[in-house]
Amino acid sequence: MLIETRNVWRRYTLGGEIVTALADVSFGVKPGEFVAVVGPSGSGKSTLLNLIGLLDTPDEGTVLVDDVAAETLSDGQRTELRRDTIGFIFQDFYLIPTLTARENVALPQLFTESATERNERAVALLSQFGLGDRTEHTPSELSGGQQQRVAIARSLINDPAVVLADEPTGNLDQNTGKTILGEFERITDDGTSVVAVTHDRLVTDFADRVVELVDGRVGDSTKATQHVS
């Protein structure tokens, strides 16, 4: 498994009460696999995404990334592993409005590559996603679908092994959503894994596997048999 949780528990204290967000969750993602995680609001989907993205730590259990147990790492080592292994796509894109598409995509490499190298890589990714003529446009000059493609390009700038997406089609119309999910299919064909937390049936139609979370526990897991065209 590329990313795996083993018997993970995560609890929070809210209003003086202990709330269990995840209860004994074991979950894994293989290289090149597209997994959709579904469930009602409050079922623990975002908590799971934060744990496998190394943004949070479990109260019990283990999170492994490429067979490395996250709890054995220092904060600095976790940051490096996250930077080198994981790409993030947020529901609201979180593009910096004063930066161009190229600058937004290149930003994660600001301290790791030369300006020439990161700009060349950013332009190549934008061109790959059909935005070669939009590299110098700011987010306000791009459509929602174009902004989402910039966000996807940014998530790939460090050649991650896995991309974690939070409601990747939540702000998009169906046609644009299909285009984005087609991009996910393409990067998984290249060996990059995708884990998408979603309420959108369209995402589950494109996924290789669908995992359901209910009240912080893993419920049904199904294998998708065909994709939407």
Results as ranks from 00 to 15, higher is better:
86 I>Q: 01
191 G>Q: 06
123 V>E: 13
73 L>I: 00
28 G>E: 13
187 I>G: 04
13 T>R: 15
30 K>Y: 09
134 R>L: 09
73 L>C: 05
209 R>P: 03
27 F>E: 00
174 Q>R: 15
87 G>Y: 03
8 V>N: 10
227 H>V: 14
190 D>S: 12
95 L>D: 05
135 T>K: 06
175 N>G: 05
110 L>W: 11
23 A>G: 00
198 T>H: 12
218 V>T: 11
85 T>L: 00
97 P>C: 01
169 T>V: 06
215 D>Q: 11
85 T>N: 06
70 A>K: 09
186 R>A: 12
188 T>G: 07
95 L>S: 06
100 T>D: 05
160 P>R: 04
114 S>A: 09
7 N>E: 15
158 N>M: 04
135 T>V: 15
147 Q>R: 15
151 A>I: 05
160 P>S: 01
59 D>Y: 07
36 A>V: 06
33 E>T: 03
145 G>H: 10
7 N>P: 02
173 D>C: 03
43 S>V: 08
119 N>P: 03
69 A>R: 13
187 I>T: 02
132 G>E: 10
202 L>R: 09
62 T>F: 02
22 L>N: 07
48 L>H: 02
208 D>Y: 11
172 L>R: 01
68 V>A: 04
14 L>H: 09
12 Y>R: 06
176 T>Y: 09
181 L>P: 12
191 G>N: 10
53 G>R: 05
18 I>S: 11
151 A>K: 10
174 Q>C: 01
221 S>F: 00
185 E>P: 00
160 P>W: 04
21 A>F: 06
23 A>D: 14
3 I>N: 00
65 V>K: 03
15 G>P: 12
221 S>I: 15
222 T>A: 15
101 A>W: 06
19 V>R: 13
154 R>F: 09
54 L>V: 13
141 E>Y: 10
191 G>F: 06
126 L>F: 11
18 I>F: 07
98 T>M: 12
117 E>C: 02
62 T>Y: 03
149 R>H: 04
53 G>H: 07
48 L>C: 07
134 R>V: 01
135 T>E: 12
5 T>Q: 01
221 S>H: 02
7 N>R: 14
36 A>T: 08
224 A>T: 15
26 S>R: 11
102 R>I: 00
56 D>T: 05
127 S>Q: 12
88 F>P: 07
38 V>F: 08
75 D>C: 02
192 T>N: 02
166 D>H: 06
48 L>I: 01
77 Q>E: 15
5 T>P: 00
87 G>K: 02
160 P>Q: 00
42 G>H: 05
224 A>K: 10
170 G>T: 08
95 L>T: 06
77 Q>I: 04
135 T>Q: 07
101 A>R: 03
194 V>R: 08
228 V>D: 13
32 G>F: 04
92 D>S: 14
117 E>G: 01
74 S>P: 09
102 R>H: 03
207 A>G: 09
13 T>K: 14
135 T>H: 08
44 G>A: 10
51 L>H: 10
125 L>E: 06
123 V>L: 02
81 L>D: 02
142 L>H: 12
212 E>G: 00
149 R>A: 04
180 I>H: 07
55 L>N: 01
164 L>P: 10
150 V>W: 09
98 T>H: 07
184 F>A: 00
56 D>F: 10
46 S>P: 10
202 L>M: 15
41 S>L: 08
20 T>Q: 14
173 D>W: 04
212 E>L: 01
222 T>D: 13
30 K>W: 12
227 H>A: 14
112 T>V: 05
179 T>P: 00
128 Q>T: 12
156 L>Q: 12
14 L>R: 15
